[in-house]
C-alpha cells in the first residue's frame, strides 16, 4: 500500500485561477509561458498575434493574488521587443530571459523588466538558432534552449556562449521533431517535450538518451503534441499534454498516475471585470457553462472552446517553492494553480 500512499500524495487538487485576458496592461493576451522569481513574482509572457497592437505582446508581472507590478516588452524588432516570443525563464540572479522564435534571439531583462541585452542569431551551425522556443536553466546556471526548427537542444552560458548541442531531426531514440518545452530534474537530467513526435524524452545532463514516455493518442498515458514538461522533487513528471488539452502526471519511471482537464474559477481580475460589468455577470450566472453537447470530430480542443473551465491550450508548467503546479493556458489567458493532495 506504500506505493498507493505515495500516489495519493502525488495527486493534484485544484486551488485557484490567476489572470484574465486583456489586450494590454494588467492581464494576459495568449500567454505562452510563465516563470517565477525567487521572491515569488510571476512573469507571464503574452504571445499575442501578428495584427494586434504592439503593447499586447509583453511580459506581465504579478503575484498569484492578482497584485499587479506592470508590464515590459512590446511587438517589434528593436531592443526589448518581440515578434514571436515563445519561452521565458529566470536565472538565479533573477535575470529574465525571453526566447523569440522569429527573431532567433534571446532577450535578457532585469527583474523589473529593464532591457539588458540580447544574444543569438539565425542559422543552422552550432550555437545558431532556428526557432528557439522552450528555455530552462540547469543547476549550473547554464541555459538550455529548444532550438525547434533545428530539431535540437542547445546549451549556452547565461551570456549566450555556446556550450553544447544534442538531438537531430527524426523519430528514433534521441531524435526530435520540433521540440518545445524543457524541464530539468534534481539530478540535472533534461526532459524534452518532443512535440512533433508526441512524446517526452529524457536525456542525461550531457545529452545522452535515457528514456522516452508516451505514444500518440488520447488514452491515459498517451500524448498528443506535448508542449511542456516539468519534474518535481520526487521525480514525478508533469506533462502539458497540449493536443489533448490536459495535464498528465507520470511516475518517476514514466507510469501513468493522473490526468486533469481543468476546473478554472473566477480570478481576482475576473471578479473585478464582472463587478463593473454587472449585466454580463448576471447573464453569466444564468447560463449553463457546462452544456452536454457533441463536439466537432470529438476533439478536446473543441470541447474546451465550448466549456470555459477546461484547459484550452495548456502550454507551460511551473512549480513554486511549495510544489504547487501553475498551468498556463494560451487560449484561455489564465493560469490554473493545483496543489498536491496530502
Amino acid at each position: 500500500m506504500a506505493t498507493q500512499g505515495l500516489e495519493q500524495g502525488q495527486s493534484l487538487r485544484y486551488v485557484r485561477t490567476v489572470g484574465m485576458t486583456t489586450m494590454r496592461g494588467r492581464g494576459f493576451y495568449y500567454p505562452i509561458d510563465s516563470a517565477m522569481s525567487n521572491s515569488g513574482r510571476l512573469y507571464v509572457l503574452s504571445r499575442s498575434f501578428e495584427r494586434a497592437v504592439s503593447d499586447s505582446m509583453r511580459v506581465t508581472m504579478l503575484n498569484e493574488d492578482g497584485e499587479y507590478y506592470g508590464v515590459f516588452g512590446s511587438a517589434g524588432i528593436g531592443d526589448g521587443q518581440f515578434r514571436w516570443p515563445c519561452g521565458i525563464a529566470i536565472n538565479d540572479q533573477n535575470r529574465v530571459f525571453v526566447t523569440d522564435e522569429y527573431l532567433n534571439r534571446v532577450s535578457v531583462f532585469n527583474e523589473s523588466g529593464e532591457f539588458l541585452k540580447h544574444w543569438g542569431s539565425g542559422g543552422e551551425i552550432d550555437g545558431m538558432l532556428n526557432g528557439p522556443s522552450g528555455i530552462v536553466f540547469d543547476q549550473d546556471n547554464n541555459v538550455l534552449i529548444a532550438d525547434s526548427r533545428n530539431h535540437r537542444i542547445q546549451k549556452f552560458t547565461s551570456d549566450g556562449e555556446f556550450l553544447q548541442s544534442f538531438g537531430e531531426y527524426g523519430n528514433g531514440d534521441g531524435c526530435l521533431n520540433l521540440p518545445w518545452g524543457l524541464g530539468v530534474d534534481q539530478q540535472g537530467e533534461i526532459f524534452v517535450a518532443d512535440w512533433g513526435n508526441d512524446r517526452i524524452q529524457r536525456f542525461t545532463p550531457n545529452g545522452e538518451f535515457v528514456a522516452k514516455y508516451g505514444s500518440p493518442g488520447r488514452q491515459e498515458g498517451e500524448l498528443i503534441k506535448p508542449a511542456g514538461v516539468i519534474v518535481n522533487q520526487e521525480g514525478y513528471i508533469y506533462v502539458a499534454d497540449w493536443g489533448n488539452e490536459r495535464v498528465q502526471v507520470f511516475g518517476p519511471d514514466g507510469e501513468f498516475v493522473q490526468k486533469i482537464r481543468g476546473q478554472a474559477t473566477n480570478s481576482e481580475w475576473a471578479e473585478d471585470f464582472l463587478g463593473v460589468n454587472v449585466e454580463e455577470a448576471g447573464a453569466r450566472e444564468r447560463a449553463n457553462l457546462e452544456p452536454d453537447i457533441d463536439y466537432f470530430n470529438d476533439d478536446p480542443h473543441e470541447e474546451s472552446s465550448h466549456i470555459e473551465k477546461l484547459f484550452w491550450g495548456p502550454v507551460s508548467l511551473m512549480l513554486d517553492s511549495e510544489s504547487r503546479l501553475f498551468i498556463t493556458e494560451t487560449n484561455r489567458h489564465r493560469i490554473q494553480v493545483y496543489e498536491r493532495d496530502n
Binding site: N266, S305, W312, R334
Partner: peptide, 14 residues
C-alpha cells in the same frame, strides 16, 4: 453585443 471576450476569451456556440 458588448464584444466581450472577458474574462477568459471567446466561448464557442452550440
Amino acid at each position: 453585443a458588448r464584444d466581450s471576450d472577458w474574462p477568459y476569451g471567446r466561448i464557442s456556440w452550440h
